[in-house]
């Protein structure tokens, strides 16, 4: 199959890689850029373990082709550094095995940016796209809400 050289913006860096047209972004991130934070869990959009941010929105990287990411701002979990939501996940024990965690954190991170005042309904709408098999979700809910409060001292 034909390969193509493309330039991607990932975690604030410009990276040039060679991909096949059919390579998913998840495959390229992990295999070509060594960013193994995004995880494969189903490869068909069911689990959310592969979630990253594309132009600020959560995206399941198994559902997007690498070539589609050209010209877009891609952020993986490796691109977050000591953010409030990461700290909250630690404090609230919102992970156990940690496999779903990068995807959940990227989803939460984007949620907090897009809806700094999210209510329960919005949080559910966003987070039900990811599966965590270890925690009870209560821990994740607490983590998200603790950051909401911090970002909105008045609310």
């Amino acid at each position: 199959m034909a390969s193509k050289t493309i330039t991607l913006h990932v975690n604030g860096e410009v990276r040039t890689i060679t991909v096949r047209a059919s390579d998913t972004l998840l495959f390229a991130l992990r295999g070509k850029l060594g960013l193994t934070g995004p995880k494969p869990g189903c490869l068909n959009g069911d689990c959310g373990a592969c979630t990253i941010n594309v132009d600020g929105w959560p995206m399941k990287s198994c559902l997007m082709l690498a070539v589609e990411a050209v010209g877009k701002e891609v952020v993986t979990i490796e691109g977050l550094h000591d953010t409030p939501i990461q700290r909250a996940f630690v404090e609230e024990f919102a992970f156990q095995c940690g496999y779903c965690t990068p995807g959940f954190i990227m989803n939460c991170h984007s949620l907090l940016k897009q809806h700094p005042d999210a209510d329960d309904r919005i949080i559910k709408e966003w987070l039900e796209s990811n599966i965590c098999r270890c925690t009870s979700y209560i821990e994740i809910e607490k983590a998200v809400k603790s950051v909401l409060r911090k970002e909105e001292p008045g609310g």
């Binding site: 295999g31 934070g37 977050l80 550094h81 630690v90 992970f95 496999y99």
Partner: peptide, 23 residues
């Protein structure tokens, strides 16, 4: 005590490695 887990930092930064991550 709710001692913070020893694997916390690597798990919330995507640095934690699982079998398939070693290449």
């Amino acid at each position: 005590k709710s001692v913070i887990r020893k694997d916390a930092a690597e798990k919330v930064t995507g640095r934690a490695k699982y079998t398939h991550d070693y290449q």
